[in-house]
């Protein structure tokens, strides 16, 4: 896509905004529509659009595959780990009161935030990993073919 000047410039402008919007959807999910799943997908689409317009190699410099694979598992571990933490605190599994026993509402808030972050990380990782798996097999498309 070396010749598509407009696409490249617009992508450079948009990628940052997409990431910012993903973080907003992620951490504002308590107050407005959105949450981990949506934020993860938006975040991943930011990475994927970068990979589509520039090249897969450049994207993998920014977001190397080994990091993606670690993030995949990290999200689930973060979610399950929250449950383990509340078990250790003497509460039921995934009872967020354990995070702040004196103020249950704060605990719920914190718990939802952490758990949603775990969901977001896993979804981002999975989407980017699937994109890598497909894109690594793809012969590079000529500009004329589009």
């Amino acid at each position: 896509m070396r010749h598509h000047l407009i696409l490249r410039v617009i992508t450079k402008m948009l990628v940052g905004t997409i990431f910012l919007f993903a973080l907003y959807v992620q951490f504002h999910g308590d107050y407005s529509p959105g949450g981990g799943f949506q934020a993860g997908v938006i975040m991943a689409s930011g990475f994927i659009i970068y990979g589509l317009i520039f090249s897969l190699e450049k994207l993998q410099l920014v977001f190397p595959p080994w990091l993606v694979h670690k993030l995949l598992a990290l999200g689930v571990l973060l979610y399950a780990g929250t449950g383990i933490y509340s078990l250790l605190g003497g509460y039921a599994y995934l009872d967020y009161t354990a995070l702040s026993p004196h103020h249950p509402e704060h605990g719920q808030h914190l718990g939802i935030l952490i758990v949603e972050a775990g969901v977001g990380i896993t979804v981002t990782g999975v989407m980017v990993a699937i994109y890598y798996a497909f894109a690594a097999r793809t012969p590079i498309i000529n500009d004329e073919e589009w």
Binding site: S32, G35, Y79, P104, E105, Q108, I112, V119, T122, V126
Partner: peptide
């Protein structure tokens, strides 16, 4: 009990925490 204004998030992550954990595992 939860004090989060978005009911969908509260139900998804708190009351239905196990379901969401399962969904995340499925995505994984």
């Amino acid at each position: 009990e939860v004090g989060v204004p978005n009911a969908v998030t509260a139900i998804l992550a708190s009351y239905r925490g196990f379901d969401t954990l399962g969904e995340t595992a499925v995505v994984f």
